[in-house]
Measured scan of single mutants.
Amino acid sequence: MKKYKITVYDEKTGEKHTIEIEMSEEELEELAKKLAEKHNVKVRIEKV
């Protein structure tokens, strides 16, 4: 498992949230996809 920083940005409201999380790359990609689809936000992932 690796550490990642996830930034979620909502273009409508301008809200931006960043968290650090430790998980596998596959789980992370699935999480990012679900966030983007369900909440209509942009998701950026960076390795820490």
Results as ranks from 00 to 15, higher is better:
M1S: 08
M1W: 06
M1A: 09
M1G: 06
K2Q: 14
K2H: 15
K2N: 13
K2Y: 15
K3C: 07
K3Y: 08
K3I: 06
K3R: 13
K3F: 07
K3M: 09
K3V: 06
K3S: 03
K3T: 06
Y4C: 01
Y4M: 01
Y4D: 00
Y4L: 01
Y4K: 00
Y4E: 00
K5E: 01
K5Q: 04
K5N: 03
K5D: 00
K5V: 07
K5S: 04
K5T: 06
K5L: 06
K5C: 06
I6P: 00
I6C: 03
I6V: 07
I6S: 00
I6A: 00
I6W: 01
I6E: 00
T7L: 04
T7I: 07
T7G: 00
T7K: 02
T7P: 00
T7Y: 10
V8F: 12
V8E: 02
V8Q: 02
V8P: 00
V8H: 01
V8N: 00
V8W: 15
V8S: 02
V8A: 02
Y9M: 06
Y9F: 08
Y9E: 06
Y9S: 03
Y9G: 00
Y9W: 15
Y9C: 07
Y9A: 01
Y9K: 02
Y9R: 02
Y9V: 06
D10I: 05
D10T: 02
D10P: 00
D10H: 06
D10Q: 03
D10Y: 10
D10V: 05
E11G: 06
E11T: 15
E11W: 12
E11I: 14
E11A: 09
E11F: 13
E11H: 10
K12L: 14
K12F: 10
K12R: 11
K12G: 08
K12Q: 10
K12W: 10
K12H: 10
K12S: 11
K12P: 02
T13V: 02
T13S: 06
T13I: 02
T13Q: 02
T13K: 04
T13A: 03
T13R: 03
G14K: 05
G14D: 04
G14I: 00
G14A: 02
G14E: 02
G14Q: 04
G14V: 00
E15C: 10
E15F: 13
E15S: 07
E15D: 07
E15T: 11
E15N: 07
E15P: 00
K16Q: 14
K16D: 05
K16S: 15
K16W: 15
K16V: 15
K16H: 12
H17A: 06
H17L: 10
H17D: 03
H17W: 15
H17Q: 08
H17E: 06
T18F: 06
I19E: 04
I19T: 05
I19H: 04
I19K: 02
I19F: 15
I19N: 02
I19S: 03
E20K: 04
E20W: 14
E20A: 04
I21G: 05
I21T: 04
I21A: 07
I21H: 02
E22G: 02
E22R: 05
E22D: 06
E22H: 08
E22V: 09
E22C: 14
E22M: 10
E22K: 03
E22S: 09
M23H: 02
M23Q: 02
M23S: 07
M23L: 14
M23W: 04
S24A: 07
S24P: 08
S24F: 12
S24D: 11
S24E: 10
S24M: 14
S24I: 10
S24C: 12
S24H: 13
S24G: 09
E25I: 08
E25H: 08
E25K: 06
E25L: 09
E25Y: 08
E26I: 10
E26L: 14
E26Y: 12
E26N: 11
E27S: 09
E27M: 10
E27L: 08
L28I: 11
L28F: 09
L28W: 05
L28Y: 08
L28K: 03
L28N: 02
L28V: 14
L28T: 04
L28E: 03
E29I: 12
E29L: 13
E29A: 10
E29T: 11
E29K: 13
E29D: 11
E29P: 05
E30W: 12
E30D: 09
E30Q: 12
E30R: 12
E30V: 13
L31Q: 02
L31A: 03
L31S: 01
L31T: 04
L31C: 09
L31R: 02
L31G: 00
L31E: 01
A32H: 07
A32M: 14
K33Q: 11
K33N: 07
K33Y: 04
K33P: 01
K33I: 08
K33M: 09
K34N: 08
K34M: 12
K34W: 15
K34Y: 15
K34V: 10
K34H: 15
K34P: 00
L35Y: 09
L35A: 03
L35M: 07
L35R: 01
L35F: 11
L35I: 06
L35V: 04
L35P: 00
A36M: 14
A36T: 11
A36N: 08
A36F: 13
E37S: 13
E37C: 11
E37R: 13
E37T: 13
E37G: 13
E37K: 15
E37D: 09
K38V: 10
K38L: 15
K38R: 13
K38E: 08
K38P: 06
K38S: 10
K38Y: 11
K38D: 10
K38Q: 11
K38H: 10
H39A: 12
H39G: 15
H39L: 10
H39C: 11
H39W: 03
H39I: 11
N40H: 14
N40Y: 05
N40V: 04
V41M: 12
V41Q: 06
V41E: 03
V41G: 14
V41A: 07
V41D: 05
K42Y: 03
K42F: 03
K42P: 04
K42S: 12
K42M: 06
K42G: 04
K42L: 09
V43M: 02
V43D: 01
V43H: 02
V43C: 04
R44V: 15
R44D: 08
R44P: 01
R44E: 11
R44L: 14
R44T: 15
I45Y: 03
I45H: 02
I45R: 03
I45T: 02
I45D: 00
I45A: 02
I45E: 01
E46S: 06
E46V: 08
E46N: 04
E46I: 09
E46D: 07
E46H: 05
E46A: 05
K47P: 13
K47A: 15
K47V: 15
K47G: 09
V48D: 04
V48S: 06
V48Q: 05
V48R: 05
V48W: 01
V48K: 05
V48L: 07
V48M: 07
V48I: 12
